[in-house]
Design a protein around this nucleic acid. Sequence first.
DNA 1: ATGGAAAATAGGAATATTCCTATTTAGGAG
DNA 2: CTCCTAAATAGGAATATTCCTATTTTCCAT
Lengths: 143, 143
Amino acid sequence: MVINQNIAKLLQDSGYKLTRQRRVIIEVLSKNERPLTALELYHQVKDKIPTISQDTLYRNLEVLSFIGVANRIRVRGGDRFELVQQHHHHFICLKCGEVKCLKGCPIGPGQLAEARKNDLEVLFHNFELSGYCDKCRSCQKEG
Amino acid sequence: MVINQNIAKLLQDSGYKLTRQRRVIIEVLSKNERPLTALELYHQVKDKIPTISQDTLYRNLEVLSFIGVANRIRVRGGDRFELVQQHHHHFICLKCGEVKCLKGCPIGPGQLAEARKNDLEVLFHNFELSGYCDKCRSCQKEG
DNA sequence: ATGGAAAATAGGAATATTCCTATTTAGGAG
DNA sequence: CTCCTAAATAGGAATATTCCTATTTTCCAT
């Protein structure tokens, strides 16, 4: 699989080098639909680069997320990572832990007003919902 | 200092016991204005209960946050915790790491619509902004 | 006040994440 | 193509967070 040219360009334009490790991490991310845990990612990447370190994985996920290529979803029990296809947000099930992607983004100028008032320069935003997913709703009383 | 009766009641009504550890954790949280790191909290609590374990601290912060008494703000380099005075959200400075509280909450039914459409039961939401704080804006090119 | 069950704790083990540093590599200049 | 430098890597150390379990504590019923 050849890495998306846009991503390659984004990296280089931002002053980051296109290393084998980065290429593989992006490849693995792009092959998966759902947000993966660091461990899941690590195993899949390790299949192709057995010597890769966890630090390299985390460091690059940080870089990718900084330039807007990946998302890091901070959740209890292990953060999840995904390739950014289109800006969106997440729902986290408090029972099964599953992370679901929500279409669209309901955050607009109205939601950023307070920060502006306080003279803060907003570059990014993160919006997460949590509760019970459709599957877990029906059996909230169980285990 | 006597612990806020509302909190004590909230704990018990939710089926949680009012232990010495919980009392002290809440006391320490209530004495601090800004969100504290787990380590800062740990030291302050340890002054009063030298044998307390980090697990107890984390476990109780989880409980307190579950019943809406505390907030956990997940950020790079160590999560921050605060007592919930009034529902609000945060701004995280990408340069100095400081966490600022924003007044009010701009999240309404419109922001939850997509989740409802997907048959998800929303119980909580989290909204975070990041960028440069007022102090760091003026010297973005440095350090 | 006393007994007992469920909940909570302390500590240590297991994970998850970040930091540090000597070595290697990507990518530009010649 | 070769050299050079800044950026990136591997690995291990250091933190941060969660899990596990034997023991202790809270609190309800008596």
